[in-house]
């Protein structure tokens, strides 16, 4: 019994149903159920994080042990991980809280993680150009429509378009607020219904692939 899917399915059903009921009943104990569930979720996630770290570190230590391809870079990853953990502990001892501005921990965050994140983010400037070029080469009706609209909107949002004709930015805004808005609304209505569908399928136990 306990090894089967019965108990987990019952838990999903009860949790989901109580949260739905709580949406309509503000009175205690229902009113705070969603907040409590989220708090519990974050505690579960906190413990599961250790499983995640275990998975990552095990993968890379195994790579190093077996001298697999690119194993030397796994040492870099482990070094980075250990370095920030050690700096974090030292910062906690020294400042009482590692997250204080000026601590070594935050220095590493600000000068290593932030620039790396920003640079990864800025790669999008190149990728967006290559994706647009691809749409240009696709030469089917839908891709052409997408690309032409993209060019009009992009052009309408740079100052030069207004110098050529003040109607261009107005037309761009019209595209954003009429056909773009219409498509977005239709898609969002579909998503809302789809989300309700997925949720009910899981709560009712029709969809159970997430449990082995």
């Amino acid at each position: 019994m306990i090894k089967g899917k019965g108990i987990p399915l019952a838990i999903s059903f009860l949790t989901g149903t109580i949260i739905i009921i709580a949406f309509f009943i503000p009175h205690a104990p229902f009113g705070s159920f969603e907040e409590i569930s989220l708090r519990w979720y974050s505690i579960i996630a906190g413990f599961t994080m250790l499983l995640g770290v275990d998975s990552l570190l095990r993968l890379h230590t195994n790579k190093i042990k077996r001298k697999e391809n690119h194993w030397a870079y796994s040492i870099v990853l482990l070094f980075g991980f250990l370095l920030i953990v050690i700096v974090g502990i030292i910062s906690t001892i020294r400042y009482g809280n590692a997250f204080l501005t000026g601590s070594g921990f935050m220095y590493m965050y600000d000068n290593m993680i932030i620039p790396l994140q920003s640079t990864m983010f800025s790669l999008l400037a190149f990728f967006i150009a290559s994706a647009a070029y691809r749409a240009f080469r696709a030469r089917n009706f839908d891709a052409t429509l997408l690309l032409i609209t993209a060019i009009i909107v992009m052009f309408g949002r740079v100052p030069i378009s207004e110098m050529i004709s003040p109607k261009i930015p107005i037309f761009t805004e019209w595209i954003m607020s009429v056909p773009q808005m219409a498509a977005k609304r239709g898609i969002i209505i579909g998503i809302a219904l789809g989300a309700i569908g997925v949720s009910l399928r899981i709560i009712l136990g029709i969809e159970r692939s997430y449990l082995s």
Partner: peptide, 28 residues
């Protein structure tokens, strides 16, 4: 995905894209 802001990029860069509810219905 259901993120309407990201769907255009998937449409441009991927071979097939499941738009919003299509993705929700995919397992069915």
């Amino acid at each position: 995905t259901t993120e309407t802001a990201q769907l255009p990029f998937f449409v441009a860069a991927c071979d097939y894209t499941l738009i919003g509810e299509e993705m929700m219905a995919a397992s069915v």
